[in-house]
Amino acid sequence: MIKKRFILNFPPDSGDKPLSYHLVKEYDIRINILKAEVFPGKRGSLLLELQGTAANIEKGIDYLVRHNVDCEPLEKRIRFQEERCIDCGNCVAVCFAGALTMGPPDWKLQFDKSQCVVCELCVTACPLKLFEINFQ
């Protein structure tokens, strides 16, 4: 069993299909919705954590793609200019998900993208504007 987070972007006409039901029922994937934005008739975006076997998750993602859902691993939607980071900690202060952490011994920023919940607070909290997250 593995856990992996994906950002899903739905086309305007996909709102009527129970896609997540099929993920659970047919691919035995546990899903956890971490963030959702739905604008009926326009678009929808989801942050999903999928838990299951690697093979099933791959099949589940294929299923979604076949239904015109754009699926991308979360970390591919996060851009962080690490080389410019000064390790100030402003992003750590707002990251309640625990993706951004800092501590002994070296007090350098650690970024575990797999823990991100796309709250996007770091995007504005970083005084150097080093984060970019593309949810839509």
């Binding site: 000064i86 390790d87 100030c88 900690g89 402003n90 750590v92 202060a93 800092m102 070296d106 007090w107 350098k108």
Partner: peptide, 9 residues
């Protein structure tokens, strides 16, 4: 807690 000044620097 979190710092807002860089200890590493």
């Amino acid at each position: 807690t979190a710092p807002v000044a860089s200890l590493s620097k």
